[in-house]
Design a protein around this nucleic acid. Structure first.
Lengths: 195, 195
DNA sequence: GCCTTTTCTGACCGATCGGTCAGGCTCTGA
DNA sequence: TCAGAGCCTGACCGATCGGTCAGAAAAGGC
């Protein structure tokens, strides 16, 4: 068959992105991807050294953006770090919904593979930043819930346009994150309306 | 060997719970579970009809609690529904951290299996309740982010005691959820949702 | 003692996985 | 015209998966 100077490479990548997001990395076989593109499994392995290499190329842009967010956070503390982490991660999650969905579902094994080992550290730093570098458990918990939830939500709302999703998420994060050094409206004692 | 009137059944269940939570349902083989218990794979399949039956028995208590929460939500609307959904789901997530972690990671395929088909509907209703039955996208998004994030967070903080985790999550949810009939800064256009 | 029931096992099955390999096809430039 | 590069394939490999089955080993009532 031999198509015009390999658009096949890109087609495989696109099909893999689609299927990984739905079925997961482990749940998608090379055969599945090959079938969708209309080539043989051997052809997939001609274009990509192995399954992991295919995943790595797929994730590269998202990882690059995550890395650059990590760099931007390097010099910041407190509320400034929170704000940059919030806007940066929301942007990233909205733009790379599918890629993040893959990472989300298969954390334990994927992060053991050499190409993705540093991601755990980066996302730990991101969580710390979103918690305003507070070591209060409640701040850490809130940050983790938000990061995880946003990853999930973006994968779920595939059909919501970016420009609707982004502000909604950003508003949510700003409301939900535990403030650190901003002047707080009430003392941390329980001035509760519920109990 | 033939142990005293099968504690083996329970041991298999416990080992499966541990491994599913770490490696996922699909990522854990019957061989793995058998090895941890110290029996043969065939023995696992003597106590459980098949892998899915093992999972179903493991999930039963969590699903029962989810079902009862669903029942409790049946007659409620607005802020009352939000509050019950919030406390109920936080309780459930804290108590059944491991079980929820399994469901979380392997949604698409697990929910296709007959034993779990109705869970998707229940969790949709739960999300709606947490959104105060508002159809504003931002309310729906916030609810989904919170539900997903909490599931993830509980699985992550395995070593945090229940009594520390629960209030932290509850505070977060109450702060993050979009209020429906509480006094709002902007005039509510759609006060009446479904009557 | 013996017989039945419960518990457990090794050997085996078909299916599927990721990956290899030798070779065929088409295009291109000399 | 022909050699070589790029692209693609079917056949095949070893490993692992969930699951079956005949029968051994132990437990318990008689």
């Amino acid at each position: 068959m031999a198509r015009a100077v390999s658009e096949t490479h890109g087609e495989i990548l696109a099909a893999a992105a689609r299927q990984f997001a739905v079925t997961g990395y482990r749940g998608t076989s090379l055969q599945d991807i090959a079938r969708e593109v209309g080539v043989s499994k051997a052809s997939v392995l001609y274009h990509f050294a192995n399954k992991e290499a295919l995943l790595a190329e797929l994730m590269a842009p998202a990882i690059a953006m995550l890395q650059s967010l990590d760099d931007k956070l390097a010099g910041l503390t407190g509320a400034a770090a929170q704000e940059v982490a919030a806007t940066g991660f929301v942007d990233l999650a909205v733009r790379f919904r599918r890629e993040i969905a893959v990472l989300r579902g298969e954390f334990p094994e994927l992060l053991c593979q050499p190409a993705f080992m540093h991601i755990q550290e980066i996302s730990d730093r991101l969580r710390n930043a979103l918690a305003g570098y507070s070591d209060r458990p409640s701040a850490q918990i809130a940050a983790l819930v938000l990061l995880a939830g946003i990853s999930e939500a973006c994968a779920e709302f595939v059909d919501v346009p970016d420009d609707d999703l982004r502000p909604a998420l950003l508003t949510l994060v700003r409301r939900a994150v535990e403030p650190v050094d901003a002047p707080q409206p009430q003392p941390p004692t329980t001035e509760d309306k519920e109990s």
